[in-house]
């Protein structure tokens, strides 16, 4: 057929068809449950009456759940702990990921493949398993790394112990992201820098690292998001010691409200608050880092 069509007519509804699966999945697994959680957050369960309540019904609670949630000191201490934990995990994860990526990228480095795989491997270990494994390493009775002399679950130490599990699991993935960006840099860049008399260290710090900054930014964002959602590590380590309470971080509080106390309404309200905060923080983080990168590039 030699018929010609204008571009607009040729495409028709096709682009919409292409994005349809993504939109449907987003609607089914993000918008719908999100909307349901929002709905729940304005409700509350009340017993019907009598000694045992005689069944329950839900009532419209207005903003009462939000008032309770925002006034709950447990949640705020949880937020503080989450921030303290993030202060450990975010810089450590990004720093080690960048360090390992740069080292792997050096020409002198030997056994690159096996090293890369070894550093990446912890990422493949599910968080719960990793936490259990580290738990055994920390506990005095089972520790091969001096848990009988050092209290890994001490008041301050516990942040580093929990953070360590998260960092251990996340470094590999972030390293690969940065390493891939490093490999994509044209070899001529390093070469010309070398010809200009730059040392290996200068090439890394002045040429390579600035050029992979976008990848580092992305890793930072990933890590910040992970820090806001921290749950697996402290929740798995909880039964091993007295150091981690059931509301240690905000997600644990949500979990405890929903599944421990069967109060999905409070849990929904906390979730909505936390989601809003997480969105705000991630946008802000992205903005700040992005603008700094642009400044440096300029």
């Amino acid at each position: 057929m030699a018929r010609t069509t204008t571009p607009a007519r040729r495409t028709g509804g096709f682009p919409y068809l292409l994005v349809l699966p993504a939109v449907l999945l987003f609607a089914a697994f993000v918008v719908a449950p999100g909307g349901y959680a929002l709905l729940l957050s304005f409700q509350r369960r009340k017993v019907n009456g009598g000694l045992l309540g005689g069944g329950t019904h839900t009532v419209f609670a207005g903003l009462a759940n939000y008032r309770d949630v925002l006034g709950d000191s447990d949640l705020w201490s949880g937020v503080l702990r989450m921030l303290a934990l993030g202060a450990v995990t975010v810089p450590a994860t990004v720093f080690f990921a960048l360090l390992f990526a740069v080292l792997l990228d050096l020409e002198r480095t030997r056994l690159k493949r096996i090293t890369r795989l070894t550093i990446f491997l912890p990422y493949a270990v599910p968080g719960v398993i990793a936490s259990l494994m580290w738990g055994f390493l920390y506990l005095p009775a089972t520790s091969p790394i001096g848990g009988d002399r050092v209290d890994f679950f001490g008041q301050v130490a516990v942040y580093f112990s929990v953070g360590n599990v998260a960092v251990w699991g996340a470094v590999g993935f972030n390293m690969i992201v940065i390493y891939t960006a490093l490999r994509a840099l044209p070899a001529e860049l390093s070469e010309s820098a070398r010809l200009d008399g730059a040392s290996e260290r200068q090439i890394v710090l002045r040429v390579k690292v600035p050029m992979v900054m976008p990848a580092v930014v992305m890793c930072t964002l990933f890590t910040v998001l992970a820090a806001l959602q921290v749950f697996n590590e402290p929740n798995t380590l909880k039964p091993l010691s007295n150091a981690v309470s059931s509301t240690w971080v905000p997600l644990m509080k949500i979990y405890d409200d929903a599944f421990g106390n069967s109060d999905i309404y409070s849990a929904a309200a906390t979730s909505v608050v936390l989601t809003a905060a997480a969105l705000a923080v991630s946008f802000a983080t992205a903005r700040i880092i992005q603008s700094r990168v642009q400044q440096e590039a300029a």
């Binding site: 449950p33 999100g34 749950f231 697996n232 039964p239 979990y255 929903a258 929904a268 979730s271 997480a278």
Partner: peptide
């Protein structure tokens, strides 16, 4: 059964992002 063995469902919660509503499944 020790009441703190609440393990598995935890993963499900994370998978749902921050949204609790998945409890219904």
């Amino acid at each position: 059964i020790p009441r703190r063995r609440r393990g598995a469902a935890a993963v499900a919660l994370l998978a749902a992002g921050l949204l609790v509503a998945t409890a219904a499944c």
